[in-house]
């Protein structure tokens, strides 16, 4: 049984040790369903999913700075052996160099967001609406607690099924770029639940973040559709209070595609058409992914840290490459 986790344990070690790129979502590397590439000649790990004729890579190489290019080169050779094309998602700006050197085209695909807990406060007019929403949910009788998974897993799975049912017929549970709970790595996550009349009204899981902005990643969230407004906000505020008291430095809100596309100049060699298309999906792509709705929640917390997140195309910007990221996520 231990051998089943040998590869993902190695990936975990890599994301903890090789934080060159400071990928705030790196913990998704240990999601079940991921495949791992490593090379006998280079330390580190590449996380990916074989998807159709593509290898969809998560993040950049989790490797020492001086080895990333060699590991990527070996991964390129590995893909060629299978006649597959690489597309990498959630590539950080600090990951870009080895990709550019090897002829990849890199475009910004969205951004991730974070707050500095050492300076964070909900005081002031800007947060009045949020404070009021949280207060209303608590007045409704909502109780928020940090809990172990075991006591709540059944209710969480039922809530997940109920939530998925509201998304329409045939809509599948997303994978790959979203968190998981349970399983081998659950002890490394934290879980906060909202309880109303003794029953689960919502939950948020938090995953560890390593590197220069360490802390927790606001990961999976679900709430009862019929619950009062403010459940998520109340849960997250409680978690923020707990983390702050512990001296945790940062709370990350993770990646949202199609967002914050013009915060910094695009990388050299990028595709203008793909950049246009990402902007178009921000404006008109709610059916593809509800980016505006997701960002609206994150912006309630006024995240002062915005980190560009990129897509790297092996053979130039490509629509099928983009589609295969969605396919790896079980979204198509």
């Amino acid at each position: 049984m231990a051998d089943n986790y040998a590869e993902s344990d190695k990936a975990l070690e890599a994301i903890q040790k090789y934080t060159v790129a400071d990928n705030p979502s790196a913990f998704l590397a240990v999601n079940s369903g991921n495949s791992y590439f490593s090379s006998p000649s280079s330390p580190g790990v590449i996380v990916y999913r074989p998807t159709g004729r593509y290898l969809v890579q998560f993040g950049g190489p989790f490797a020492p700075a001086e080895s990333r290019a060699a590991l990527l080169k070996d991964f390129v050779a590995f893909a060629a052996e299978q006649d597959r094309t690489i597309v990498a998602v959630q590539v950080q700006d600090a990951d870009a160099e080895p990709y550019l050197e090897q002829g990849f085209t890199i475009n910004q695909m969205g951004a991730s967001y974070a707050i500095d807990l050492s300076t964070f406060s909900l005081r002031g007019t800007a947060f009045m609406q949020l404070r009021n929403k949280i207060a209303r949910s608590l007045r409704s009788g909502l109780e928020v607690r940090e809990v172990p998974l075991d006591d709540w897993e059944d209710q969480m799975r039922a809530l997940d099924a109920s939530w998925l049912g509201t998304k329409g017929e045939g809509v599948k549970q997303l994978e790959f770029l979203v968190g998981q709970y349970g399983g081998h790595y659950q002890s490394m996550r934290r879980l906060f639940v909202g309880i109303l009349d003794g029953k689960l009204a919502g939950y948020i899981t938090y995953s560890p973040v390593y590197g220069a902005q360490p802390g927790w990643l606001h990961d999976l969230t679900r709430r009862l559709p019929s619950g009062p407004p403010g459940v998520m906000e109340a849960i997250n505020k409680t978690a923020i209070d707990v983390f702050t008291a512990e001296g945790v430095k940062f709370l990350h809100f993770g990646f949202t595609p199609f967002t914050s596309l013009d915060k910094r100049p695009q990388l050299p060699g990028h595709s203008e058409a793909f950049h246009w298309f990402m902007s178009h999906l921000w404006e008109n792509g709610a059916a593809v992914y509800p980016a505006q709705t997701q960002l609206a929640y994150k912006q309630k917390w006024a995240p002062g840290i915005v980190l560009p997140e990129n897509i790297a195309f092996q053979h130039g910007a490509s629509i099928p490459s983009l589609v295969h990221i969605f396919r790896a996520c079980n979204a198509v």
Binding site: F277, H280, V288, I319, V323, F326
Partner: peptide, 13 residues
């Protein structure tokens, strides 16, 4: 491009 994105999503292979 948007239309073709949908077409590829419907038939990714």
């Amino acid at each position: 491009v948007f239309e073709m994105f949908g077409a590829v999503a419907a038939a990714p292979d």
